[in-house]
Amino acid sequence: MKTVMLILLSLVAVACTWVEPKPEAAGIKLATASDVQSCDRLGAATAKGVSKVGIFVRKDEKVITELAALAKDQAYSMGGDTLVRESELSEDGAMTFGVYRCR
């Protein structure tokens, strides 16, 4: 019975999104490179998350959503209002976003 409970708990943990952006970073939007052509680039935000829990591999979409939330927090602290994805999700769960000020 303990084994079944442990497996169920692990499956629930894999499905969860654990990162929420800070309220002040909620207004930061994700955009494409063509959307930020007239914006000021402030730098880059690299975020790293958990892509694997034990033997379970988490879905890329959930990991990317968490990484974007972490990057939004970094962008807010840099004075940015827009993020552009600059890399793919790496094997170790990292991704880089460009930080821009467009408004």
Rank of each mutant, 00 (worst) to 15 (best):
K72W: 02
G79R: 02
E88S: 10
A13L: 15
Y76F: 11
G93E: 07
K62G: 03
K62D: 05
I28T: 03
M78N: 02
R41N: 14
G93Y: 03
R58C: 10
C39S: 03
L42I: 11
E66A: 07
L8D: 08
D35G: 09
T82H: 01
R41F: 04
T46A: 02
K48S: 07
A26V: 12
K59S: 15
V84R: 01
S10I: 02
L6H: 09
L6G: 10
V57T: 14
A26I: 01
A26S: 11
A94G: 12
E86K: 11
S38P: 04
L83E: 03
G98Q: 06
Y76G: 00
Y100F: 05
R103S: 14
M78H: 01
M95Q: 07
G98C: 06
T82F: 03
D60H: 04
L89M: 11
Q37L: 14
E61N: 12
M95F: 08
K22S: 08
Y100A: 02
D35C: 09
K62E: 04
M95E: 08
E61I: 12
P21I: 02
S38G: 14
L89E: 13
V4Y: 15
K59I: 02
K62I: 09
C16G: 07
M5H: 13
R103A: 13
G93R: 05
E61A: 15
Y76V: 00
T96Y: 03
M78I: 04
A44E: 10
L30Q: 11
A15L: 06
K52A: 07
D92R: 09
A25C: 09
R85E: 15
S10F: 13
D81I: 00
I64M: 03
V12A: 11
G80T: 00
L11D: 04
V57K: 12
D92W: 07
E24R: 03
A68N: 01
V53T: 02
R58D: 04
I55G: 15
L70I: 07
A75N: 06
L9Y: 12
V4K: 15
A94F: 03
E66Q: 06
K59W: 11
A75L: 05
V12L: 12
V99D: 00
V19E: 05
S77M: 07
K29N: 01
